[in-house]
């Protein structure tokens, strides 16, 4: 065992953690918000939308 073997394990662990974060957040988001809200983005509506979001943020 030298430094690089430990780094290999560290890389496996870090990959797992990043993956875990993504999956947990994904599940939480999908169960918190309604599907209609999540998929409400529409092409070409953005200019009006950015304005609107500024008011609602917070």
């Amino acid at each position: 065992m030298d430094l690089w073997n430990y780094l290999e394990y560290a890389a496996w662990a870090a990959s797992f953690l990043f993956g875990l974060f993504i999956v947990i957040d994904w599940i939480r988001t999908d169960s918190t918000y309604s599907e209609d809200f999540l998929t409400s983005s529409r092409e070409g509506e953005l200019e009006a939308l950015t304005e609107e979001q500024h008011h609602h943020r917070g």
């Binding site: 030298d2 690089w4 290999e8 394990y9 890389a11 496996w12 870090a14 990959s15 990043f18 993504i22």
Partner: peptide, 29 residues
């Protein structure tokens, strides 16, 4: 790793490949 004295060819590249992709996916997320 080889230049720093690790035995050539013995390093498992897979965790590093996966880490690069997972880290960047996380950042993008």
């Amino acid at each position: 790793a080889t230049m720093s004295g690790h035995e050539a060819g013995s390093l498992d590249q897979r965790p590093f490949i996966i880490l690069a992709i997972m880290f960047l996916a996380w950042l993008n997320y």
